[in-house]
Design a protein around this nucleic acid. Structure first.
Lengths: 132, 132
DNA sequence: TTGATGTCACATATGTCATAGTACATCTAG
DNA sequence: CTAGATGTACTATGACATATGTGACATCAA
């Protein structure tokens, strides 16, 4: 029906979860530049969420430069824009630190973390190579 | 004054930031098992936050098994309890995936991620070795 | 023109967050 | 025993985010 899957978890905003699933689909190649993105109404119907919530998803992805929304036409997937230095530093500075601290608290080793990262990385890249 | 530092950022809950700073201090050895933890009122005064917010920090860390709070006595740092399998799987399943997806979206390589993890890991472990 | 699209503007309900104030139980120090 | 410090519980308020509900408008293809 829609070109990506979402498994809703309680505790996190719906629009955030849907947007994350869409980003993941773009990275793994399930959604490629030029592909049509589900409309506000189609998305709300398929995921059984409110149209305004679906619109928030599209608005967020559009703001990130991942989608191009045109009234009357629809929304299409764009080629991902080059990342900003501030974006990368935010990721490498804060989020990696939080993950590292929590991993250490749980008694994991560096190798455990590396292995987990590799696992997800290879999983995504394998999907991307499935659909050339 | 208090045995850890916090640099407040807007956009994230205060009690979450303080709790994270406390966990980081415990891991890096600035706070060791048996050490006294600042009281609700001392914490609120030192960080200029409301006592209720400070209490929420202590309540959260107590629920995680990192602190032992006793009325009339004070709060002391506990030896970190062994991690649960569900905790580890949650970390390795969800948070690592989110970090991986975002890193890929920003055009980073696996090596970039590994290097960032190593950097923070070594930084924390170096602090822990400073104070034996 | 018709239909589907994106967009916007209200409103309502719920939940979180931080603050504020008050009160109580417990323990140590004197 | 008393005074003081501590942790804990409760209610309340204002700001903000979230999700839903409803309605309307502009744009474009068929």
């Amino acid at each position: 029906m829609i070109p990506f899957q979402v498994v809703f978890q309680s505790g996190a905003p719906i629009h955030g979860q849907v947007a994350f699933a869409a980003r993941k689909a773009m990275i793994s190649g399930q959604l490629r530049p030029g592909d049509p993105f589900p409309s506000v109404r189609a998305l709300s119907k398929a995921l059984k969420i409110h149209p305004n919530t679906a619109h928030k998803v599209i608005a967020q992805l559009t703001a990130e430069g991942l989608l191009d929304a045109r009234p009357g036409i629809g929304t299409v997937v764009l080629r991902p824009p080059p990342s900003t230095r501030s974006e990368r530093s935010r990721l490498l500075g804060h989020e990696v630190e939080q993950l590292t601290v929590e991993a250490m608290r749980l008694g994991l080793t560096v190798d455990d973390l590396h292995a987990a990262v590799d696992e997800h990385w290879n999983l995504l890249q394998a999907k991307a190579k499935e659909k050339p």
